[in-house]
């Protein structure tokens, strides 16, 4: 899998799904809903965000509802990876299912600054801070989940398996 390179957008602890995408926007198509991402705490986020950026967050990122629209709006904005101290379970599963690497790293949120450029190796979980010239070790995803991300998400993964008949 290719190394992910991007600029960092930083968030705190317990960023819940009602923050990532409030329920009243769930009826919008994802391409419109993405404009509302993070609106309750950072209304300008969708405008400021630059494609292929990486989100760094604290504990329990994505807690709350099962709404898949939460990682879906982040994907639509072009988020290339999410690194958090910990993820809420359903959000973690949804993120992988949509083909976005979700890496847990205890130090990332404290050591990495907003706007910094970093590189992530999804296979090894290594996170390189380019300016600070240090490397942090994040969680290694099990091969089973890496396969799903490599295929671009659960649907392409299942399709491929069904066609190949593995």
């Amino acid at each position: 899998m290719a190394v992910i390179h991007g600029k960092v957008w930083k968030f705190g602890d317990n960023i819940d799904t009602d923050i990532i995408i409030p329920a009243r926007y769930l009826i919008l198509p994802i391409e419109e809903a993405k404009e509302k991402a993070m609106e309750p705490i950072r209304p300008s986020f969708s405008k400021e965000f630059e494609k292929s950026g990486i989100i760094i967050a604290g504990r329990n990122f994505g807690c709350g509802s099962s709404r898949e629209q939460a990682p879906a709006v982040l994907r639509a904005l072009g988020v290339s990876a999410i690194v958090a101290k910990t993820f809420a379970r359903i959000f973690f599963r949804n993120t992988i299912n949509l083909g976005i690497p979700a890496i847990e790293c205890k130090e990332a949120c404290d050591k990495i600054e907003e706007g910094e450029e970093i590189e992530i190796e999804p296979e090894t979980g290594k996170i390189k801070l380019l300016k600070q010239a240090i490397t942090l070790q994040g969680s290694k995803l099990p091969p089973f989940l890496l396969e799903i991300i490599k295929d671009g998400g659960l649907i392409p993964h299942l399709k491929k398996r069904l066609i190949i008949g593995v």
Binding site: G64, E68, G153, L154
Partner: peptide
């Protein structure tokens, strides 16, 4: 399984019940 986070409710009846996102639920 439910495409709703509060699917854990059904564990009160002794089911292994858990919430998932729409893609998992579609599968």
């Amino acid at each position: 399984l439910g495409a709703d986070s509060h699917t854990c409710t059904h564990g009160a009846l002794g089911a292994f019940a858990t919430g998932m996102g729409s893609t998992d639920i579609a599968g």
